[in-house]
Amino acid sequence: MQESMTRAHNSAEDIKKREYANRLYMSGWGVTILGIWGAVRAVMSIYIYRSDIEEFLSDGDGTMEYKTALFAIVTVFVILIYALSLAVHLFIGTRAMAVGRGKKRRPIYLVMAALIIAFSIVPQMATSDEKMYENKADETVFDTAFATDLLDLTLCFACAEMIYCAARIKLLQNKREKTVTKGTEQ
C-alpha cells in the first residue's frame, strides 16, 4: 500500500497533447462567442439604422406597400444570412470544444474554419485599406469599422489556432500509434 497503484502519464507527448487539447477547446470557445456576437451585432444594426430604413421607406418612387414588402424581404434575407453565419460559427466552435475534450469528430469543422479565414482575409486584401478607412472616416464610422476589423482578426486568429492545435494533436496521436505498433512488432 505504500506505493502508488497508478502512475501519472507525463511523457512529453502526453503533456503537449493536453496543452493542445486545452488550446483547441479555448479557440472553439472563442469562435462560438464571436459567432454569437456577430448575431447580436446584426440585431443591433437593424435597430441602430432604423431611421435610415424609415427614410428609405418615405422617400423615392414606389408605393408604400411595395417598399414595405421589399424591406421585409431584404430583412428576412439578411436575417437568414446572419443565422447561417451563426450556425456555422456554432458548428465550428462546438466541434472544436468537443475534440478538445477528447471526443471524436470529423474534421469538416477545420475546413470551415479555413474558409472563414479565407473569407475574412480575401475581401480585406481586395480592397485598399486606406481607401476603406478613408471612406469610413467620411461617414464617421471609423471607430466601428476599426473595431469590426479587430474582431475579424481575432476570429481569424482563433480559427488558425484551432487548425494548428488539431493538426498537432493528430500528429502526436499518429506518432504514438506508430510507437505502439513498433513495440508490438518487436
Binding site: 505504500q2 502508488s4 497508478t6 502512475r7 501519472a8 486545452n22
Partner: peptide, 16 residues
Amino acid sequence: GGYNEIVKDNPSDYYN
C-alpha cells in the same frame, strides 16, 4: 502543474 498529471493515492498517503 503545466499540464502535468498528478495522481493522488490517498490510501497510500494516509497510511504513511
